[in-house]
Simulated scan of single mutants.
Amino acid sequence: MIKIGIVGGTGYTGVELLRILAVHPEAQVQCITSRSEAGVPVADMYPNLRGHFDLAFSEPDPAVLAGCDLVFFATPHGVAMRMVPELMAAGVRVVDLSADFRIKDLDTWARWYGMPHEAPEWAANAVYGLPEVARNAIRQAQLVANPGCYPTAIQLGFLPLLESGLVDASRLIADGKSGASGAGRQGKIGMLHGEVGESFKAYGASGHRHLPEIRQGLAAAAGQPVGVTFVPHLVPMVRGIEATLYAELTTADDFERLQGLYEDRYRDEPFVDVMPAGSHPETRSVRGANHCRMALHRQEDSKTVIVTSVIDNLVKGAAGQAVQNMNVMFGLDETLGLKAPALLP
């Protein structure tokens, strides 16, 4: 059994981790922390977990966390980087669901997150945890930076085109839409149902903090700097991300070959589903599941390839991918605890 600690367990990603780990046959949650809710039984806050966990939230205790095999951080940005060095010294493995270790250029990180980075040596050594790209490095990693939700859907959608060099890497467009749970569980007026319902808007159009992470991942796939325009949108649903991606072909490749390119790239990936060309993946088809579904489109007499990519922002975009990374790190079947199909309706 893998002894698990979760730091910051009261948010949506924390409870999603608990939901997944409750049925994971090789994971045992030893502790789950929350400074604000210390002493409160987990099942009192999240009644869906009654009968699955007898734990109560506790204050973060480095000594207790050091007794775990792996610790998940489901905390606001800036928390993990202060606690991780001590856990690393104790030999604990970590999957960080915040952005603290995702971006390698720490000046860029500080500019977007508004604080200096406090663990630069570990930022340099962290493995970016997109299993479809870095599986071998994840197996050996002590610290894995779990990708963000938008970056997951966007990178998976663009990867085959960039890896094959078939598109102009300087002219990529990512149009993303997310449900309200992507903003977290904090009480914010802008996230109230009366504010979000019956409305649809763009945000962060002048620049969003996921942009440098997206840029970094796509540049690695392309083997060169990329130019990407990313605009996120808030839609009136609880969970789910849809990313519509646009890229300009630089060759005369026929559309059938592009479809084959995607099918070949993801043939052995358990959590990426390339749908038939012309399909329109729906967010409800991945709700509660660790899958990314995508489909290719190309309009008549156009050199623009359109990729539509959907994930559940709390699962493949957060907690599910974190458990997938844990499975890889400990040499388990990568799908363990993650085989449940999506919820419909």
Results as ranks from 00 to 15, higher is better:
residue 164 S to P: 11
residue 284 R to M: 04
residue 97 L to D: 02
residue 135 R to D: 09
residue 64 V to R: 09
residue 13 T to H: 03
residue 119 A to G: 09
residue 345 P to R: 09
residue 285 S to E: 15
residue 310 V to G: 04
residue 75 T to K: 08
residue 140 Q to S: 13
residue 253 D to W: 00
residue 238 V to D: 06
residue 99 A to I: 10
residue 96 D to G: 02
residue 132 E to C: 10
residue 67 G to L: 07
residue 205 A to N: 03
residue 184 G to L: 02
residue 322 A to E: 04
residue 70 L to W: 03
residue 186 Q to Y: 14
residue 152 T to H: 13
residue 102 R to K: 08
residue 161 L to D: 12
residue 258 L to F: 00
residue 121 E to L: 15
residue 109 W to M: 13
residue 161 L to S: 10
residue 39 G to A: 08
residue 299 Q to G: 14
residue 56 A to K: 03
residue 306 I to P: 05
residue 237 M to S: 12
residue 334 E to P: 11
residue 233 H to A: 02
residue 333 D to A: 01
residue 198 E to G: 11
residue 177 K to V: 11
residue 176 G to Q: 08
residue 4 I to V: 10
residue 205 A to R: 02
residue 130 L to N: 08
residue 109 W to L: 01
residue 291 H to T: 09
residue 81 M to T: 09
residue 309 S to G: 14
residue 247 A to Q: 14
residue 278 G to A: 10
residue 154 I to G: 10
residue 118 E to Q: 13
residue 89 A to L: 11
residue 141 A to S: 08
residue 245 L to V: 02
residue 54 D to L: 05
residue 146 N to Q: 09
residue 81 M to H: 05
residue 31 C to E: 05
residue 97 L to A: 14
residue 302 S to M: 12
residue 345 P to C: 04
residue 140 Q to L: 14
residue 31 C to P: 01
residue 103 I to G: 00
residue 144 V to I: 00
residue 124 A to G: 11
residue 295 A to I: 09
residue 146 N to R: 02
residue 213 E to D: 12
residue 147 P to D: 00
residue 66 A to V: 03
residue 279 S to I: 03
residue 1 M to H: 12
residue 312 D to W: 03
residue 152 T to E: 11
residue 164 S to F: 10
residue 201 K to A: 14
residue 332 L to H: 02
residue 273 D to W: 02
residue 116 P to T: 04
residue 230 F to W: 05
residue 124 A to D: 14
